[in-house]
Design a protein around this nucleic acid. Structure first.
Lengths: 350, 350
DNA sequence: CTGTTAGCGCTTTCAG
DNA sequence: CTGAAAGCGCTAACAG
């Protein structure tokens, strides 16, 4: 009579369904699907089970698995703003490496706001992420440091904390500055100003320190070098700093900027004041982000390995998670290289 | 004697812990925390429970909740490549809107590969995403169409399927082309070539069709307009197409490109051949992606609302999920505007 | 090699 | 208004 099949099953098949059709117990199916346990099962049984899985198009429910194992195979990625051209390739590196290991990434944008960062980090944890990669940390980030201390897997990328206990993957900021300074000096520049980034960020601080140190070392000038400080790493601040330099009337033939965005702003300001880059003043950047080879003039800069720092950060966090949270090799610093384009040229004759 | 506190509890508190401390049943706690059910609980009890939650710093375990409710509050975002400057602002729009509604985004990069897309989409579904926003679809995307037909919430953004049953949020491609063509004609151009995008993508197709239609309408020329087709939306193809135009010797005073990256490539090729942009030839783009205002020459283009199409796509998918998968308003098309910069100028006198 | 058992932490009827 | 009970789908001892 009413032995018709029920009205359209939409539900995804579960382990139980597979077990029933294969005539075995659910745990047998579970083991068959677990690469670490499938050697325990007889081959014929495995065959049978695999066949049923295929037939039903069975997909394990990762939520259920997560609840049981307390692992989500998901990593939180905390970024200031994905719209900042520096971050997409870093994120892509992270994503690719994670995906290759069966992990997924949840990205949140903090806009550099500490409160937002804390709040978003909490929601990531509430979602059960297994670890966090943070690209948005200031040098003193109490919240991140605290979580790391508690044993939660965290690595920072591109920037790092002053606190050395939080592992990081960064660029060789020091060498980058040295390299580009050497380049400018070789072009005959002696009056070189540094447009520095925010000193609350490791990148801003390290690059400014390197500038001061190598400037003293290479140029051996009596007076200390001129450094103007930007409040954030963006074009508007680059413009403001350039204006400030011009206003002060500091004699200068080159502006070594702490990143590309500052350089872009500086170039705009200099041009607006009728200066030619690089004929009147050379301007250099740092990062070699997308499209800086197409701007006017194409930017001389330091190429960092965006994609690779991302991949390395992902590898590091995965290692921490597997080895139960022990930092594998504290701080990784990737090499950088100079890319000479047209924004730097011979120092003008006085 | 041994009434010391146990040796360091690391575990997160659970509903059960809260219930015990508050002297109520777990279900009472659960209701208190559920905005849709908390009216059932007496105020004093709620107070008590809230206090305990605060004291324990209780955070609901969203995994457990997901397992029970079969909802993860997570959306999959399928993008060709976040490294492509078009996508970061779109993704940011998606992310912001989702976050505001308590949802998170998992992003995957397909590199435009259909197999990868299918495979990655499957893993998203296995992870239990409640819906998918796809920015990477070709016009005929069997896989996406099939999933949508099955009732899985999907919306496409920036591009759309030919199949009208899959909802989308796109730009007014047709008007954008009309607007920029009008601009060029107003500058005196009569020999305008179109560097078209891949015809397998809605953007490529729609823009090329619009070009042909409005060209005929506005210029009323006997011969059909010249269109060269790029195989993908990138700089290299822009260069190739520009070379091809030059090689053919087609007389042309303006190249209307289907997007900014093609325009950037075309400009590079024209310059390399000694042509000046815009004095000898005007070049225009589409999208107004980051930094095209800083390249040489600054690009005349159509500004799309990157961020807003992202937000709208997020809103649409959330509506579908809440209303149980009913497309709320099929296809949303956001307005675009012309941005005139220096890559377009008066047609040269012959 | 395979089955049994006992939950992970939460939601949701169903009672009272 | 609150408690009891069942169970989402899977894993991991522990027995055989």
């Amino acid at each position: 009579m009413d032995d018709r099949t029920p009205p359209e099953r939409k539900k995804r098949p579960t382990l139980k369904d597979v077990a029933r059709l294969a005539g075995v117990h659910v745990s047998t199916v579970s083991r068959t699907l677990d690469p670490n346990a499938d050697h325990l099962i007889r081959d014929e049984v495995k065959e049978k089970i695999r066949a049923v899985c295929r037939e039903l198009n069975y997909r394990p429910n990762s939520i259920a698995s997560s609840l049981r194992t307390n692992r989500t195979k998901t990593i939180g990625v905390v970024i200031p703003d994905i719209t900042n051209l520096l971050f997409p390739p870093i994120f892509r590196g992270i994503e690719d490496e994670l995906a290759a290991q069966g992990y997924a990434a949840i990205m949140v944008n903090t806009d550099g706001d500490a409160d937002r960062e804390e709040q978003l980090t909490e929601t990531l944890i509430a979602r059960g992420v297994d670890g966090i990669i943070a690209a948005s940390v200031p040098r003193q980030d109490a919240h991140i440091a605290r979580m790391a201390q508690r044993g939660f897997p965290i690595v920072t990328v591109n920037r790092r904390l002053d606190d050395p206990s939080v592992p990081s993957v960064t660029n060789d900021d020091d060498f980058g500055i040295k390299r580009i300074l050497t380049h400018l000096v070789a072009l005959g520049h002696r009056r070189i100003v540094h447009i520095a980034g925010p000193q609350s960020l490791s990148t801003g601080k390290l690059r400014a320190e390197a500038f001061a140190r190598y400037h003293a070392e290479i140029l051996e000038q009596a007076e200390p070098p001129v450094i103007v400080y930007a409040e954030s790493f963006n074009e508007a601040e680059g413009e403001r700093c350039a204006e400030q330099i011009l206003a002060k009337g500091t004699p200068v033939t080159a502006a070594l900027c702490a990143n590309d965005r500052l350089a872009i702003g500086a170039i705009a300001a200099f041009k607006r004041r009728g200066l030619k880059v690089p004929e009147d003043i050379s301007v250099t950047g740092f990062n070699d982000m997308a499209l800086v080879d197409r701007i006017d003039p194409p930017l001389t800069t330091i190429r960092i390995q965006h994609y690779e720092i991302g991949r390395n950060a992902a590898r590091m966090i995965l290692a921490m998670i597997e080895n139960g949270t022990l930092p594998p090799d504290g701080h990784k610093v990737l090499p950088v290289e100079l890319v000479v384009r047209q924004s730097s040229g011979p120092a003008p004759r006085p």
